[in-house]
Design a protein around this nucleic acid. Structure first.
Length: 502
RNA sequence: GUCUCCUUCGUCUAGUGGUUAGGACACCGGGUUUUCAUCCCGGCAACAGGGGUUCGACUCCCCUAGGAGAUGCCA
């Protein structure tokens, strides 16, 4: 038997971590079994549907490199793969159930239903439809129709007995029929099917063999089986995936931070990191290995190793994975990644100049290990392309030093910067050490003012590398500017003291 | 309220009757280092509780507690 699985999102919002995890598990399972991965768009909720969400779905899957074997834009033998194009089909199957007495028309208004729920809640009764229309006589139905009442079609859940389904992870899950949501709606009054109907019909028609979906669907599992039985179909295997939670243990949502994949993408996360980390929430290969490429997972993934309990999404660990993957990238690849961010932040020109490109190529080696996100590059590299000046005197003057000492240290450093580029780093380091002894400050205390002067920040890539990238002339210019600032400040201070003395 | 699922360090997890309960992130310390970062070394830290079964339970069974999810003309 060929394995056929599907990812069936509904385009009512941006693709988020939870959805992508489900997609990934389905995709990896299909690949590892040599089966087919199908994409099906469940756009039956016309209220919440948005074109933007649909585009985001395609973009996200493409960015992650999750290719579907059958589905929209790709086709296949079981299309169309968009549910809004299959409404006739659902209608036909729903009518069939009504004809056979397995389902019925319900004319209850939403007001009546709202009311009912309110009363049930207040009286602490169990919630759910009261099956008001389940046993309407033919006369009553005809009257409702004649009155022009709109109707929905509901499934008749047996009042007694129990229903169970087999879950690869959970084993056999059994539910008493009386505990199943009483008579769920199959067809809405707008002519569109609900998830339950469309899902079952499509999964059967598309010959889906395994349903991997989030555990939030467990409660409707038995009901879906009942639907399969009503049609006389064989239900597929189920595998209910553990949910992804936020730090507080609640279902992961916006208030925990970004959850949409596009947000992660904009922030400078690599798809490799997201795929790897998201797969590790709820799945583990063994007791030590945790780095996997997509290709490796396509081979190694297995349902047996999925955990049953929900997992908390750890942004910190994803960040760590991202850093690891950044450092694994080749310099050439990283340059490709970095350029769009530099452009977006106005660090380099839209049409990258030769000079800019040269700096970019030369700077990557000292930038890479400082990146947690690709987007970090702009802050880090700004001083190489743009004028600086956002530093303050307190940034420049090292701890336990005054204006004069700082000026002396910086002037000493300036001497060495002049001939800097004709020497090796080792030679330079030797000279800087000697010079720092000469002016009686620690090496660090001499280099810190220099660092701020040329990079504008106390935190920067290594000084020697930065100097080389920036060029001696530019560096001297910046150093001189800082020295003059310091001298002005020192003079002011003297005058102040002089005034006080009089 | 009712039903269903879940329960090993703070977090992700390994573990399938006998282990000093292992790894990773985070955190804390130390080292390398011109800052930051990287990297290396070390430390902290868990079997929810109670009953059984057994020579022996993290592992099997039951109960309790806790958590989550569902209970829509949303998926």
């Amino acid at each position: 038997m060929e394995v056929r699985v599907r990812y069936a999102p509904s385009p009512t919002g941006l693709q988020h971590i939870g959805g992508v995890r489900t997609a990934l598990f389905n995709y990896f399972f299909a690949r590892s079994m040599g089966g087919k991965f199908i994409l099906r768009v469940e756009d039956t909720d016309r209220e919440r549907f948005s074109e933007e969400s649909l585009k985001d779905l395609y973009d996200t899957l493409e960015w992650l490199g999750i290719n579907w074997d059958e589905g929209p834009e790709k086709g296949g033998d079981f299309g169309p793969y968009v549910q809004s194009k299959r409404t006739d089909l659902y209608r036909k199957y729903a009518d069939q159930l009504v004809d056979e007495g397995m389902a019925y028309h319900c004319y209850c208004s939403s007001e009546r239903l709202d009311n009912l729920r309110e009363v049930q809640k207040k009286e602490k009764l169990s919630y759910g439809y009261d099956r008001h229309c389940r046993d309407l006589t033919k006369e009553e139905r005809d009257k409702n129709e004649k009155d022009g009442l709109t109707s929905v079609i509901r499934l008749k859940i047996p009042l007694e007995g129990k229903t169970s389904f087999d879950d690869v992870l959970l084993g056999t899950v059994t539910r008493k029929n009386k505990d199943i949501s009483p008579d769920p709606v199959l067809m809405k009054s707008d002519g569109f099917p609900t998830y339950h109907l469309a899902n079952v019909v499509d999964d059967h028609l598309m010959e889906i063999t395994h349903i991997l979906r989030a555990q939030e669907w467990i409660p409707s599992g038995a009901m879906h089986v009942l639907l399969y039985k009503a049609f006389g179909w064989e239900p597929p295997f189920y595998c209910h995936l553990p949910m992804v939670m936020g730090k507080d243990g609640q279902k992961l949502s916006k208030r925990h931070g970004s959850t949409s994949v596009v947000d992660f993408r904009k922030r400078g996360y690599l798809p490799e990191a997201i795929i790897n980390y998201v797969t590790m929430v709820g799945w583990a290969f063994d007791d030590s290995r945790e780095f996997f490429t997509k290709e490796e997972l396509e081979e190694l993934f297995s349902l047996e190793k999925i955990s049953k309990s929900p997992g908390v999404f750890d942004y910190k660990k994803l960040e760590w994975f991202n850093g690891q993957y950044i450092r694994k990238k080749s310099e050439a690849d990283l340059i490709e990644e970095v350029i769009p961010y530099l452009k977006k932040d106005g660090i380099i020109s839209e049409e990258v100049t030769e000079k800019e490109m040269l700096i970019i190529k030369n700077m990557m080696s000292i930038m890479t290990e400082r990146l947690h996100f690709i987007s970090d590059i702009s802050e880090l590299a700004r001083f190489l392309f743009k004028d600086i000046g956002n530093y303050t005197l307190t940034d420049i003057i090292p701890k336990k030093m005054d204006f004069k000492g700082t000026i002396i240290a910086l002037e000493g450093a300036r001497e060495l910067v002049k001939g800097f580029s004709s020497r090796t780093d080792e030679e330079n380091e030797e000279l800087f050490r000697k010079k720092s002894e000469e002016v009686k400050v620690k090496l660090g205390s001499m280099l810190m003012p220099l660092r701020v002067a040329i990079s504008g920040s106390k935190v920067s890539p290594p000084i020697f590398g930065s100097l080389r990238l920036l060029g001696v002339d530019k560096a001297l210019e910046r150093i001189d500017h800082v020295i003059s600032l310091l001298k002005d400040a020192a003079k002011n201070e003297e005058e102040q003291e002089g005034n006080n003395g009089q």
